[in-house]
């Protein structure tokens, strides 16, 4: 498995299927993307388009009735051999080392990642005990330091509290601290700042950029906030109905969107332009344009791809 572009992670033709009585549903369809080492890839797109399912697949977290029905997820650790995560079984020691150790995940819904019956301190230290050899005193010191970094005031007192005693945004910051505490090589951040006010959001974005510059951490940043994308991302992948419909550098995608869905997204941001008016939705922007056939992702330049209708795609590939 060669790694010519110095990627930290490479997803190749990934499909994830959920089986049910009504038949199989492909939540992720033939998705490929690269995460270059030390870079931030933002994944944006429709609600329900498969962003979180793809992230879960990277950690080997797809459970029945779901399954990885096609493709590879290649992880290139800084030291050691590349691994295809899709081939690891639940019992594999390597999967355990990757999950929460080499790849840290900030889950979309903080309450699902926190235990209601353990104190915040215990949960942060537990993460350290699992992946690093530290004693209790050292673990507590690191936990306090980490809480401070994510902007929790009076961290030593807060350590003793339980999740229900925290506000939504404070819980989200605990989950961020938990993902960062083991110094992972890749951070998957699924909507990490949606519950945060913009000043703390700015602080978290600065923290992530700093980590990424200092330690060469790579980040997959899933978000709905295109303002956040503009600030933090190097590259952007846009998902729609299980597929990637557009990829490129942050400047290319946000300043010169090509796919009709990306254009609709940018138009729907509430702004000075549509103040007091009805907001444009995807349906109102698209009008009669049918984009259900715009599914073939074609590379139209270095690192720049867009999904086109088959006839257009055929023209391009000539």
């Amino acid at each position: 498995m060669p790694n010519p572009n110095e990627n930290a992670l490479s997803i190749r033709e990934l499909s994830v299927t959920f089986d049910s009585e009504d038949g199989a549903f492909e939540a992720v369809r033939n998705v490929s993307y690269d995460v270059p080492r030390g870079k931030v890839l933002a994944v944006v797109g429709e609600s329900g388009s498969g962003k979180s399912v793809t992230a879960n697949a990277i950690l080997g977290l797809i459970q029945a009735p779901g399954r990885v029905s096609n493709g590879q997820i290649l992880f290139y650790p800084k030291k050691g051999n590349p691994v295809d995560i899709t081939t690891l079984s639940e019992k594999d020691d390597l999967l355990f080392k990757i999950r929460g150790g080499k790849i840290g995940m900030i889950f979309q819904e903080p309450m699902t990642a926190l235990s209601p019956v353990h104190s915040i301190g215990n949960q942060l230290c537990e993460a350290l005990f699992l992946h690093k050899s530290v004693d209790k005193k050292e673990a507590e010191r690191v936990a306090i330091e980490m809480l401070e970094k994510v902007g929790i005031t009076d961290p030593a007192t807060r350590l003793k509290q339980y999740p229900h005693e925290f506000s939504g945004g404070m819980r989200q910051r605990v989950v961020i601290a938990m993902a960062l505490i083991c110094e992972p090589e890749i951070i998957i951040a699924d909507e990490p700042t949606t519950a945060l006010d913009v000043t703390i959001q700015a602080q978290i974005l600065t923290l992530l950029s700093k980590l990424q510059k200092e330690t060469g951490t790579s980040v997959i940043f899933i978000t709905h906030d295109l303002g956040v994308v503009a600030q933090i991302a190097d590259d952007v992948a846009v998902m729609y109905k299980g597929r990637i419909v557009e990829k490129g550098s942050v400047r290319q995608v946000l300043k010169d969107p090509l796919h009709p869905y990306t254009k609709a997204l940018l138009a729907a941001i509430p702004s000075q332009k549509n103040l007091g008016a009805r907001l444009p939705t995807i349906d109102s922007v698209l009008g009669d344009t049918d984009i259900s056939t715009h599914t073939e992702l074609i590379e139209i330049g270095a690192g720049r791809s867009v999904a086109l209708a088959p006839e257009e795609a055929a023209r391009h590939s000539k």
Binding site: G168, H224, I269, L279, T281
Partner: peptide, 16 residues
């Protein structure tokens, strides 16, 4: 925070 997890297009639909 009831539209925070929605992409801006679905968010627009819910706000409307």
């Amino acid at each position: 925070e009831s539209v925070s997890a929605l992409d801006v297009s679905v968010q627009a639909q819910v706000i409307n």
